[in-house]
Structure formats: C-alpha cells, structure tokens
Amino acid sequence: MTGKPSLHEIEAAEKKPLWQRLGWLAIIWTGSVLALFVVASLMRLFMNAAGLTTH
C-alpha cells in the first residue's frame, strides 16, 4: 500500500456536508492557534525568568 487515498475514499470525503468539512477546518485552525499561544507564552515566561524584559 502506498499510503495514498483511493478514489473511493476521496469521493466519500467530498460527499460530506459543507458544514462538517468547515467544522473540521475550524477545529484544526483553533487548535493550531492555541498551540502557538501556549508555546509563545512559555517562551515569554522563560525569557522573563531569565531577566529579559522590554521595559
């Protein structure tokens, strides 16, 4: 198996309702934004702990 989706799987995915596909897009986007926020907050916390401040 090559790992590529078959034509049948692609057609089945395209038949799903638009709201369901957009919902997954929104969930994935929100998750990635939250993950970025967590990483940036941790970096800021460590930088402040090391004495690196902007004011």
Rank of each mutant, 00 (worst) to 15 (best):
I10Q: 04
L42Q: 13
L34G: 10
T2V: 10
I28F: 09
P17E: 02
K15Q: 06
K4R: 14
H8M: 07
G3D: 12
S6M: 04
K15L: 00
P5V: 04
R21V: 01
H55K: 15
E9K: 02
S41C: 13
M1D: 13
W24Y: 05
G3N: 11
W19N: 02
K16S: 00
M43F: 12
E14W: 02
W19M: 00
L36V: 11
Q20Y: 03
L18P: 00
L42E: 14
M43W: 11
G51F: 15
A26Y: 03
G23M: 03
T53E: 15
K15F: 00
F46S: 12
F46V: 15
V33Q: 09
W29E: 05
Q20M: 04
L22V: 04
E14H: 02
S6F: 05
L52P: 02
M1Q: 11
A35Q: 07
A12Y: 01
T53C: 13
E11F: 04
I27N: 01
E14L: 10
G3V: 06
I28G: 04
T2W: 09
G31L: 10
P5L: 08
M47K: 14
I27D: 01
V38R: 09
M47F: 12
M47R: 15
A26C: 06
W24M: 03
T30E: 07
G3Y: 08
E9M: 03
T53F: 15
L45Y: 15
Q20I: 01
V39Y: 11
T2E: 09
I10M: 06
S41I: 06
A26N: 02
F37T: 10
S6C: 08
A13K: 03
P17S: 07
A40D: 12
A35Y: 10
A35E: 08
A40S: 15
L42P: 02
N48G: 07
L36Q: 10
F37G: 08
S32L: 15
M47T: 11
F46P: 04
L34H: 05
P5M: 08
A40W: 11
L18I: 03
